[in-house]
């Protein structure tokens, strides 16, 4: 059974593509045959984050319009045996994404025996974003602990609950997971950032993972290698925990508490 998972957020720049890349890689590292699709037609970036931008020949729109088949368009990932990338078109219009076309691509991937198809949604609530979530079985809602991101996540949850195929056909609802990124336990401790508990309370979606703010995320995107491969980094471990929880394992939340420096350090040790 293929599971289709959309990674979405409403707001841009919160870490959808970073999360899609590491989540898909994490599933593949666990042995699942996984495809990750970039739905951001006109502004593709997943290929860069995955480090396969020079191997793009055909894209999602080519496949939808019958100019190439899936075998030609899927790019095999350089790190993981079981992972394939389907890039978005850089030149076409987002109207090229038709519901029938997307459904056919997803059905073909099912025929090819994929365990998971991860759909990396564009920002916004327009066609590309709606197409990315239409056929989802599960959804990762990527949110920063910040007001505009949280409001937009709530908005995309409303769209998920009304426009997804599951909602429209009255089937079991899309399973929602909250992913909080760019988290700073220190700032939460100082009362300057909403805690993950606050965010979860506001959005009322089960928490799948908290990814700490980390310099390695930028280093990973510079290098075109999903951050989950960067073994010693906190972000990589947090993504690995997230994948484990997604697969049903119990893992304690890490990187969410901050050890306050003692009173002497506060006086003599600077801020």
């Amino acid at each position: 059974m293929t599971r289709i998972v959309v990674v979405t957020s409403g707001k841009g720049g919160v870490g959808k593509t970073t999360s899609s890349a590491s989540f898909a890689s994490g599933l593949a590292l666990r042995g699942f045959k996984t495809a990750v699709i970039d739905f951001d037609v006109g502004l593709r970036n997943l290929d860069l984050i995955m480090g396969c931008e020079r191997r793009v020949v055909y894209d999602l729109v080519n496949v939808i319009q019958g100019e190439a088949n899936l075998h030609q368009a899927l790019i095999k990932d350089k790190h993981c045996e079981n992972l394939f990338v389907l890039p978005a078109s850089q030149t076409r219009d987002k109207d090229a994404l038709t519901e029938e076309g997307v459904e056919k691509v997803l059905n073909d991937l099912k025929q090819m025996g994929f365990d998971y198809v991860v759909c990396d949604s564009p920002a916004g609530i327009e066609r590309g974003a709606v197409m990315a979530l239409t056929f989802a079985d599960e959804a990762l809602i990527v949110t920063n602990p910040e007001v505009s991101s949280i409001r937009d996540s709530d908005r995309i949850l409303g769209i998920l609950q009304s426009k997804s195929r599951r909602a429209k056909e009255g089937q079991e609802a899309v399973k929602e997971h909250l992913v909080i990124t760019r988290y700073s336990a220190k700032r939460v401790d100082e009362g300057e950032m909403l805690s993950y508990k606050d965010v979860q309370e506001l959005l009322r979606v089960p928490l799948l993972g908290v990814i700490p703010e980390s310099e390695t995320v930028l280093q990973a995107s510079n290098a075109g290698s999903p951050v989950i491969h960067n073994k010693e980094s906190d972000a990589a471990e947090a993504y690995e925990d997230l994948v484990a929880r997604f697969l049903g394992e119990t893992r304690e939340m890490r990187f969410v508490s901050y050890e306050k420096p003692g009173i002497l350090k506060r006086i003599f040790g600077g801020a």
Binding site: R155, E192, M193, L194, S195, D198, L202
Partner: peptide, 19 residues
Amino acid sequence: PKSAQLAKERLTLVIAHQR
């Protein structure tokens, strides 16, 4: 007053309205 608390209060209203 901590700014995170302020954010939470504001978002509670916005989200209730949105829903």
